[in-house]
Design a protein around this nucleic acid. Sequence first.
DNA 1: ACCATTTGACCGAG
DNA 2: CTCGGTCAAATGGT
Length: 206
Amino acid sequence: MENGWSWEQKTLITEIIQGMELAKQLRAHLNTTSSVETRDMGGSTGQPQNAGFSAGVPESPISINGSPGSDGFDGSVKDNQGYNEASKKRKTTPRCADQVRVSTENGLEGQYDDGYSWRKYGQKDILGTKYPRSYYRCTHRNSQNCWATKQVQRSDEDPTVFEIKYRGTHNCAHGNQSIPSPEEQEKKQKNTNNNSQQQQSQQALF
DNA sequence: ACCATTTGACCGAG
DNA sequence: CTCGGTCAAATGGT
């Protein structure tokens, strides 16, 4: 019963945080003002949370290789087994997601770490966007029923900004105790969201 | 060996 | 048909 509470609170907090972040960014913009701005976050946007910037994927678009001889594919063994057809459709899946904008310092390197472990399960190019969108899911999905997922997409105009969308709730204890609550109930979430626009000030392109 | 990541294919909705 | 999202096999790294 009270379970929903946490989620609601979390959502609220998240929203507040979002607002703060936005305000921060806005402030930064205002601060610089004058002339070209272009993100000058040379320290202004003190990001509280991003401590770990690990440069990992420099993004090399050049995918070498290109699947060399792997001809093993050919249609032979593929075929999907209809595993899930259970029938009960989840009502189009509840889609409540929080959008958070993370600005990485001039360097694109750095993946913003929110404290949870994510496993990438897909990447797709979205029409209209210059960069592909990555899909992540909690590593404990099977272990703790954490069906939380995250989507990350780079801004087309500002490669320094990453748009992170969180979908679902975290049930995993990620590092803290092990699954103390065996409750696996799936709570229905209602959409209470109303945030519609969040557009940031579009910066003038050069 | 395991696990995270990569890539292609499949699927559902519009 | 197209677009977006997820899964599943293959691969690499530890």
